[in-house]
Design a protein around this nucleic acid. Sequence first.
DNA 1: CCAGTGACGGCTA
DNA 2: TTAGCCGCCACTG
Length: 111
Amino acid sequence: MKAEKESFFQNVYEVVRLIPEGRVTSYGAIASYLGAKGSARMVGWALISSQPFTAIPAHRVVNRNGLLTGKQHFEYAAAMQERLEQEGVQVENDQVLEFEKRFWDPAKELL
DNA sequence: CCAGTGACGGCTA
DNA sequence: TTAGCCGCCACTG
């Protein structure tokens, strides 16, 4: 689908942008899809650089436990949860409810 | 060129 | 069971 040699984090942006509304995914899933499985840190780290790129729904990306670990990096801590709930994703105590149901795997859904 | 950083993930004690 | 540690790889200074 893509044969560009863009930077790793640039690739992360594309995948994150493809996340459907009301769905969430994990750093590891994205990393695995990009071929950097085991290096989920790179994904999260890349999203930090995505901050200026508000077009990227980074709030749909959570950790393996469905926790909004990166909420602190948003405009304000509650922004991440707020946006998720706004899209229909129930969040409580910084944790996505029914995370397994909301989980969106790029390797499977995007294929 | 070298070293540090980082929104994770899995293993061991 | 819970808590803590190490390991991964890419980017910036």
